[in-house]
Design a protein around this nucleic acid. Structure first.
Lengths: 213, 213, 213, 213
DNA sequence: GATGAATGAGGATTCATTCAT
DNA sequence: CATGAATGAATCCTCATTCAT
């Protein structure tokens, strides 16, 4: 975590790594892990096959870099919408929901792939990645639990552990797209907004209440 | 769909097919699709490698048979709990939720695998399977939407399309386990019950209401 | 070491293994280990590439099979000439010498290869082969030491340990050809005979004695 | 062969070449030719990978430089012990034997490697090296043959060509260590002395004579 | 001269599928 | 029908060599 600015060389190296990760990510998404050859990745990243191995020790490591990237993106979404977001708690959750639905909509296939492949890698090797993932999830759950608790206090009754509710909410949002099948076209922006609002409303008020939104 | 009773030969053929599917399912679950060889499957099913090809034209077809089996199991769960279940609507949903959570808990890895692999197969070939899957899902959604509508009417307000709500509920339940990571041990029965009740309650009444359960 | 006669299947399997070993041996001899691809071996043995792997788990194992074959051949030579050979001890040694020179002349390159590669394989894996090799060598040394001792007793003086002398003699014979360089043509039969006789004579009587042969 | 003293630049170049050769030699010895990468050699010699190519046109050429070095060392041993050595002929041979056994003991693995690899290089390219090697060997054989002839004349009988006997003697000494297998530890000095004396004695007097040493 | 990132030919190995028995 | 030996296309990865800096 040194803050020394990176040298030109280091910056270029990092940039090229990112290009490779991006190429791999796109192809894995389109074709799956085993269906994508390193040669294709190299070609798509406009590098020679051997060059990839100067940046990643194996195909598996390249995959883990993608996993890491995904984790970072989820973290970023949570930070932007939940932590640094604007408005009251309920509104932040709605923003989080719509952003997450949008994101997962673009990435369901990739997420399904990652969730699956992660189980095929040696425990030892995934450990640090899963650790980071868990940590990020805990932070997200915690951030969600705060407005949940506030709302509970406001409404009077308080039957369930706010953390459990937060986990439920997050899972609902993240896997929302997994109920949509067939060729996954991206949802129109408007539809996403509505879904997000619906989810939040139901979560807080249940299905029966008359809503003013 | 002929109802003519099967001959002994046909019954035996079917039984052997099921044995093979079962073997493949277990191994795919444990090791993943590409990580499982046909040789292993054959050995585990106590057949010769070539024999598998007398029952399934390819590894892909064997995979699709598993998908089909999964669909059947979901259908069966819905039938037992929603259609033929006992008690009022809300209770049926709770039963469906707990049964489904239990089921998905045992099968998350396999479901993740299927959700992923399904995208790697030629459109043409999966079509009938996806069609059946869609049909089953529609039925489930419909079955859920009935008590939802009733409850809405009872509570007075009715802001959302009951079908959309049903889809939401089903997705919530089916993917509940995808928020749990790391080594997936099966949940204790009791915890499942609680989760199911929590989900239903929240779904109908929101988080803030005081609950009598 | 069961003596049950092999079934037809087993015999055929063994025969094919030998064909593969023979093909590999010839190519390794001609081109070296790393310079010979498994594809070439397969082609030369008139098999498909994958077939080789039904008989040998790896290229390394195939190499070890050749080593094993070489050991067997040395053992056989010793048995034929030293143990079951005819005539008095000195004559047996001469026969052994000429046979061995002949043999090593045909196989120097291969022997050099084996002596070298054996060091590149994991200790664990070579152990049983080196054990067998040692055992064979000990037997050979012992067989040589018997006439050596007899001759010593006949000549009166006895300065050196017969076993050490046997080792010396055997090494002399086995590595005789390693003093010949360049393109290794096979020696004419007659020259081999002379060399063998010379070595034995010198070994027993030294260089200066007048010889009657 | 110009005797003009080398400029500083030339001397430095030569020194760096020697460093590289030394690094390669150590690694080839430890790991084998194909098992050693140029990257390792460069690293071990504390140079950049590309730099090696400023000194040697290819890995093969680097190998040949090692061969050349070995030849030089053998030549040097012969010069020191046989040509410039002290004492009567028989004693010189004993010294040569012990020195050579010592040397080959340290280098058997490397010698085995060289003897093997030399056959994998294009005839054209090795020719000059083999030529030099032959020349050195001829000189060594000649140097050995002189005391051999003297001894023969002394002992009266003279059955064999002194040159042939010299070749035999040299080979015996050089390959002495090739009868020792397994993990090659270096022999204790004393044991080497004994072996050298034994070989010379036997060579001159045969095994049976009573010896005064 | 020194360097090391980029390259791609080359090779060991795997495995779904075929087919003769 | 059942079998498993044979097959070779396909793939990951290595590494000697080049060349721009």
């Amino acid at each position: 975590m040194s803050n020394r600015p990176l040298s030109r060389k280091e910056r270029e190296k990092l940039a090229r790594q990112q290009e490779i990760v991006a190429a791999a990510r796109e192809l894995f998404l389109r074709q799956g892990y085993h269906e994508t050859t390193l040669e294709e990745i190299a070609h798509h990243a406009e590098f020679g096959k051997g060059t990839i191995y100067n940046y990643f020790a194996s195909k598996e490591d390249l995959f883990l870099a993608i996993f890491d990237q995904l984790i970072g993106e989820m973290e970023e979404i949570a930070r932007r919408t939940l932590i640094e977001g604007e408005g009251p708690g309920r509104q932040r959750l709605t923003t989080y929901a719509s952003t997450m639905i949008h994101y997962s909509c673009d990435n369901v296939k990739l997420i399904a792939l990652v969730m699956h492949r992660i189980h095929q890698i040696s425990r030892e090797k995934v450990r640090p990645y899963l650790a980071r993932f868990s940590s990020v999830m805990r932070n997200i759950w915690h951030a969600i639990s705060i407005p949940v608790r506030m709302e509970q206090e406001q409404q009077g009754g308080c039957a369930y552990d706010p953390l459990k509710l937060a986990i439920l909410f997050e899972g609902l949002v993240r896997t929302y797209n997994m109920s949509r099948f067939g060729p996954l076209q991206s949802m129109p922006e408007e539809e996403i907004e509505q879904a997000a609002k619906m989810i939040t409303t139901i979560f807080f008020d249940g299905i029966g209440k008359p809503h003013k939104g």
